[in-house]
Amino acid sequence: MNVAIYCGSSFGNDKIYEEQTKVLAQKLALKKLNIVYGGSLQGLMGIVSNESLKCNNSVTGVITFDLINKELENKNLTKIYRVNNMDERKAKMEELSDAFIAIPGGYGTFDEIFDVITAAQIGYHKKPCAFFNINGYYDKLLDFLRNCVNEGFIKKEYVDMLIVSDDIDEIIEKILNYNAPKDKWQN
């Protein structure tokens, strides 16, 4: 099974992000859940890839040609795909992955996880989407999503389908036992 990890090319302001990213990589390796990620050595991306490789886990990177030099492509990966643009990067990562986990990151992380959440809602895939909520990083986002439900713009089941925890063991268990909701346009 391949799990896409969406995360920052920065480290964040608290060491807990690096520490918990290492734990994530270690626990996924123990369960033989391979990593698919953005191919960089920078920030949490570098932590998750290098820690996974230390644990003898398979790591596949997907990086755009123009980001190879900017993000310093990790040359030690099990496999690397080089693509033309961010849309191709997201599509390739989705194609290669059986589940998706967002850990702390910025706009790129949000774009990637919301792209696959939207695809799940519409029924383009039935793969689990998770937030590893390190240090409460996603608390305010989850409050916002619940407000979207209250305001009638997202159905509750499409917020409830998200796997959210600060415990990676719980996330892994829920990914392995995931049952997708009906897609938005299904009767």
Rank of each mutant, 00 (worst) to 15 (best):
D111S: 13
L162K: 08
L28H: 02
L145S: 01
K127D: 01
G8E: 04
V59K: 02
P181H: 07
Y17F: 15
G12S: 14
D115W: 03
L145V: 01
C129P: 01
A91D: 14
E71F: 06
D166G: 04
D98K: 13
N56E: 14
N76R: 09
F131V: 00
N133T: 12
A119E: 14
E73K: 08
M86R: 13
Q26M: 09
E73F: 04
V149R: 01
V23T: 14
L44S: 08
N179P: 09
A99R: 02
D169P: 09
R82G: 05
Y37R: 03
V48W: 04
N57V: 03
F100R: 09
F65Q: 10
A91W: 03
E19P: 03
G108Q: 10
Y81L: 10
K27Q: 14
I172G: 11
G43M: 13
G123E: 05
V149D: 04
E71P: 08
Q186W: 10
K184R: 13
I68W: 05
Y124G: 06
G108A: 12
D169Q: 12
K140R: 10
F65I: 07
Q20G: 04
K156F: 05
K126C: 08
K155N: 11
S10M: 13
D14I: 06
F65Y: 11
Q42V: 13
S49A: 15
T21I: 06
I63E: 06
G152F: 08
N34W: 01
D115E: 15
A120S: 14
D14R: 15
E19S: 12
L44W: 06
A25D: 05
N179R: 15
Y107I: 14
L33D: 01
N56A: 10
N85K: 12
L24G: 06
L53G: 09
C55F: 11
N85H: 14
K27W: 11
K54P: 05
G108W: 05
T118I: 11
I113W: 00
I47M: 06
E95K: 14
A119Y: 08
T64Y: 07
S165W: 01
I80T: 15
